[in-house]
Design a protein around this nucleic acid. Structure first.
Length: 111
RNA sequence: UGAGCAGAAUAAACGGUCGCGUGCCUUGCUCCAAAGGGCAUGGCAUGAGGAAAGUCCGAGCAUCGCAGGGCAGGAUAACGGCUAACGGCCGCCGAGGGUGACCUUAGGGAAAGUGCAACAGAGAUAUACCGCCUGUUCCUUCGGGAGCGGGUAAGGGUGGAAAGGCGAGGUAAGAGCUCACCGGCUGCUGUGGAGACAUGGCAGUCCUGUAAACCCUAUCCGAUGCAACAUCGUGGUGGAACAUAUGCGGUUGCCCGCCGCGUUCCGUGGAGAUGGCUGGAGCUGUGCAGCAAUGUACAGUCGAGAUAGAUGACCGUUCACGACAGAACUCGGCUUACAGUUCUGCUCAUCUU
RNA sequence: GGAGAAGUACUCAAGUGGUGACGAGGCUCCCCUGCUAAGGGAGUAGGCUGGCUAAACACUGGCGCGAGGGUUCAAAUCCCUCCUUCUCCG
């Protein structure tokens, strides 16, 4: 996980939820919080609502894979939080990547 | 051929590109007196399960407690064995179910004591309501009826359960009151078995159920859990020693002004880091002992160790088109979830020879 | 990951083996009022599945206290296995 920084602390998640901009689609929710420094950090949330451990692990992997394909095109200082929804379990990473690209373009993170 | 029973194995496969965790190695940069460390690139190896789950039992390991004994509390419960241990497993006995292969079974003690048994019913651990039989008094239409007293457990509705069952004798009517058969229990005893137990004999006896109610008997159990625990230890803060205000640091390069106080040691505190962390009652194969669980000898072998938590994406080929589901200190079990496929042994029915 | 607690009607809840599962709020209907509110009275395991009926109401049998088994004559209660929810340990 050295390649991309990860959000660990609870206050960082809270800051993104309360003060960040949110973008919603049927199988992904994105929160973007702009910072002054620190580069790009991401956090992935897959709650108990998604399912059991296998389903939660799968959503995290799929979202991380989609983020990996978009990672080289990002710029700025951002905290990004991706929240999985129930429908995410049955999606492929390419479908997630299309939605994520749309969300990040609206937020201005992309390019 | 159809239906079924028991056990075991497996849990889609192969190839290519990109990506992730861990270990080892190479190269480059860098910190350092050195040992060694950090970052980046590349290569090789390896990378979830039969239940990893539930956390229901049993252990290892760790810390705390503990002279020894007892009480309380909890768990288990036919018998023999296996095991580090177990409430687990194997074998076997009893009971129940199935035509059968086979399956299920918390299966000690109610004759040590206490409690409970609603409703119904005359009566619930001992009973006389109706009935049956009989003594006596009165009445009588001479059939019998009424009152008072006695005997009786055969028959009666109720109930989960009504005092062993059924037949015969017996009797005023009846009754294990007596007898034969069957059944239960207790004592003594023969045979078989390691034992539970099985199967006989003799004598006595006829007793409600409930211990997953209290209890009795036998055996076992200290508490807490890797977020345990060990090591290092920030900021802050207490004390001592040394130094000291004409000093040092910050605020603007200098002056004034303003603000703060240094070093070492011993505590307190416990952010965080490292260890614990995977080689073990290990796995595979063969032989031997044993009905088996299992034990043992030899040979081979090392198969995750993360710390916001590593297995994914895309493409191609094939098929039966893929269920339940993700390690978090480690083992032995149990329980629960589960698409299918394969193999072995066996039973029943039908048909053919 | 570990340790514990609870589950009863729409909500809150009582019920430690025994008729038909107590009660409060809420809800429905009625009374009171010109109309509301307040007050008073009645009903409220309301569901599922059978019987009765042409059909409905009423009556009645069975199931139903998170789910499924077991012990018992009898289980919300006792025992076992699951499910769900909540709390604590950094």
């Amino acid at each position: 996980m050295a390649k991309y920084a990860v959000i660990k602390q609870n206050y960082e998640f809270r800051r993104a939820y309360h003060r960040g901009k949110s973008y919603v689609s049927p199988y992904l929710v994105t929160y973007c919080f702009k910072k002054k420094y620190g580069g790009i950090k991401i956090g992935i949330t897959s709650g108990k609502k998604i399912g059991k451990a296998v389903a939660r692990n799968r959503t995290r992997r799929v979202i991380r894979e989609a983020y990996r394909s978009l990672y080289p095109q990002l710029q700025g200082n951002w905290d990004l939080v991706f929240v999985a929804r129930t429908a995410t379990v049955y999606k492929k990473s390419t479908e997630i990547a299309v939605v994520m690209r749309k969300h990040l373009k609206e937020a201005g993170v992309l390019r």
